[in-house]
């Protein structure tokens, strides 16, 4: 039913002076508004900021993300359509703009095992918006183990990595994350976001 309602809503929404109106571009003398200040992706790419290719596993759509902020172990990456992903040493801890966003994640235990190339069990807590704008936490118990060495190539250059597997289980659902670790760094991974969004495949771009 929502499928029919949404176009109706968009029709009824009309236009106004605050949000960009859909009729305004038809008016004489209309000028395209300047790009939002935050959207400096192109400049960042030009200046050589690190890049990440991200594919949504469910529908295989791909976007490029550029690093926009980072302090200590935390990094934030943004795509040109203004989706952001936040990582703690390469483990995904936040997404913004994916409609089923991961609001935060406690990955301290998983991170130690994955980067240490060690086997063991971790507890991982993921937090989501619950549909009523409150936070709902899901706790997972994860088994982490190396799957062995894997050579992977980026634009023709080959890297030796160790593939780490993280199998997580909660009373309601389960997921599997994969990390290709090279020299204490995650260079490629497949990481779970949420039931609504599914998993993302992430790959560093070597420049």
């Amino acid at each position: 039913m929502k499928r029919f309602l949404v176009p109706l809503i968009l029709l009824l929404a009309g236009c106004d002076s605050t949000s960009g109106s859909r009729l305004a571009p038809l008016l004489p003398g209309y000028q395209q508004p300047p790009p939002p200040m935050a959207d400096d992706s192109a400049a960042r790419v030009q200046s050589g900021a690190p890049l990440l290719l991200v594919t949504r596993v469910t529908d295989r759509t791909t976007s490029a993300f550029v690093e926009v902020a980072g302090t200590g172990p935390m990094q934030t990456w943004r795509s040109i359509d203004n989706v952001t992903l936040g990582f703690q040493d390469g483990l995904l801890v936040t997404t913004r703009g994916l409609s089923g966003d991961l609001m935060s994640a406690d990955v301290t235990e998983s991170r130690a095992l994955v980067l240490g190339l060690a086997s063991g069990q971790s507890v991982r807590v993921l937090r989501y918006l619950d549909g009523q704008d409150a936070i709902a936490a899901s706790a997972y118990v994860c088994d982490i183990a190396p799957r062995g060495p894997r050579d992977i190539s980026f634009d023709g250059r080959t890297f030796a990595t160790v593939l780490m597997q993280e199998q997580c289980q909660s009373p309601r659902d389960s997921f599997q994350n994969l990390y290709w670790v090279s020299g204490n760094r995650i260079v490629q991974s497949r990481q779970w976001v949420s039931g609504d969004t599914g998993a993302l495949a992430l790959r560093d771009v070597i420049r």
């Binding site: 203004n82 913004r96 703009g97 089923g100 549909g131 609504d196």
Partner: peptide, 13 residues
């Protein structure tokens, strides 16, 4: 709702 976290773009860091 169908989209618990909404479709709006990401906030600035």
């Amino acid at each position: 709702p169908a989209q618990p976290s909404g479709r709006e773009s990401a906030p600035p860091p």
